[in-house]
């Protein structure tokens, strides 16, 4: 693949948009994180583990993971109704299902853990960016996990396989492949695709998304280390 090929926003085919993750951004939440990926701006708050209500729904051998993916009415070019759409209900389900693979729910019987994902500004690939941020928020909440979960997308635009699909590319492109992985366990926990891809293109896109996810995994770790450093500083100050 020629690296001279430029995308609509000037990126090379295998280049992520500029990204930044911050952990511990919400005072009230037990864990929280924010991700900026291109113009995407997503905030995640985690509450729990806490006693599950109503009690008859609680599970005796593990915690219930609740997840809501929600887009703000002003997050898109055309106003989005604040009421959860069918798309948001589906995405809440696939994101929860992905995170359930990592969180050790058996550690908290009778409890629930709530994950609230709020997309404040959307610019394509929000579901995978949401997972990446949610995983950082869960880690900040101190919830035991088998591995981090990190997501990234790839797709096909103008006949080329490209990484991290933006909004225009999603609309005009031929295919979109969002994935989320547990990078150390080497497992795929979210996998969706729509559009048209040959088996070879699917493989190429999958491998490209995998690489992108591993780059974002480094950013997840950096965000968490950053927070720890900051806490150490604060502790140092209070000891003086």
């Amino acid at each position: 693949m020629s690296n001279n090929f430029k995308r609509i926003d000037g990126r090379t085919p295998d280049q992520l948009r500029p990204y930044k993750i911050r952990a511990g951004i919400l005072k009230n939440a037990d864990g929280s994180a924010e991700i900026k990926l291109g113009k995407n701006w997503i905030v995640v708050g985690v509450y729990g583990p806490k006693e599950h209500f109503p009690k008859f729904e609680a599970l005796q051998d593990r915690a219930i993971l609740f997840c809501r993916y929600h887009m703000a009415p002003y997050s898109t070019t055309e106003r989005k109704s604040p009421k959860p759409s069918r798309r948001e209900i589906e995405l809440s389900k696939v994101i929860r299902s992905a995170l359930e693979e990592a969180v050790i729910l058996e550690r908290f019987p009778e409890m629930s853990i709530d994950i609230y994902i709020e997309v404040l500004q959307a610019e394509g690939s929000t579901r995978v960016a949401s997972i990446t941020a949610a995983s950082v928020a869960l880690a900040e909440a101190g919830i035991p996990m088998k591995d981090m979960v990190v997501g990234c997308s790839a797709g096909k635009v103008n006949g080329k396989i490209v990484l991290d699909i933006g909004e225009t590319e999603d609309k005009e492109g031929e295919a979109d492949l969002p994935i989320a992985i547990m990078p150390n366990l080497k497992k795929v926990v979210l996998l969706q695709m729509d559009g048209k891809l040959t088996h070879e293109e699917f493989k190429e896109a999958f491998e490209m998304a995998l690489k992108g996810a591993l780059e974002l995994y480094e950013e997840q770790k950096r965000a968490l280390k950053d927070l720890i450093e900051k806490m150490k500083e604060l502790e140092g100050e209070s000891n003086e």
């Binding site: 696939v94 299902s97 979210l190 969706q192 695709m193 729509d194 040959t198 699917f202």
Partner: peptide, 9 residues
Amino acid sequence: GEICSVQLL
């Protein structure tokens, strides 16, 4: 033979 949709359920 192309794929048009994938969903990990």
